[in-house]
Amino acid sequence: MTVRLKDIASDLNLSKMTISRVLRGQTDVSAATKARVLQRMKELNYRPNIAARSLRSGNTFSIGLVIPSLSDPFFTEVARGLVQTVRAAGYGLLISSSEEDPEIERFEIGLQLSRQVDALLVASVQESTEFFDDLGQQHVPMVFIGRKPPSFGAHFVGVRDQDIGYVAAAHLIQTGCHKVAYLRGPRTAAADLRYSGYRAALNDFNIPFRPALVIEACEADRHEYRRGVEAMCRLLTEKVRPDGVMCFSDLLAIGVIDAALNKNLKVPEDIAIVGCGNQPLIQSMKVSLSSVDLAGLEVGQRAAKLVLRILSSEKVASNRSLYVSPRIVVRDSS
Rank of each mutant, 00 (worst) to 15 (best):
T2N: 15
V3W: 01
R4Q: 12
L5Y: 06
K6V: 12
T18S: 09
V22D: 01
D28M: 11
S30I: 06
K42P: 02
R47C: 12
P73L: 11
F75N: 02
E77N: 12
V78S: 11
A79N: 06
A79F: 07
R80C: 09
G90T: 14
L94A: 07
L111V: 14
R115I: 07
R115E: 11
V117R: 01
D118S: 07
V125Q: 02
Q138E: 15
F144H: 10
S151W: 01
F152M: 11
A154R: 09
I164L: 05
Y166R: 14
T175N: 10
A181T: 09
G185D: 01
R187N: 04
A189I: 13
Y195W: 12
G197F: 03
Y198L: 02
N206A: 09
I215N: 01
L235Y: 08
L236T: 05
T237Q: 14
D243E: 05
V245A: 04
S249Y: 10
A253K: 07
I257D: 04
N262T: 09
K266A: 07
K266F: 08
G277Y: 15
G277T: 15
Q283P: 02
S284I: 09
S284R: 09
G300Y: 00
G300H: 07
R302A: 06
K305N: 10
R309H: 15
E314V: 07
S321L: 11
P326R: 10
I328H: 08
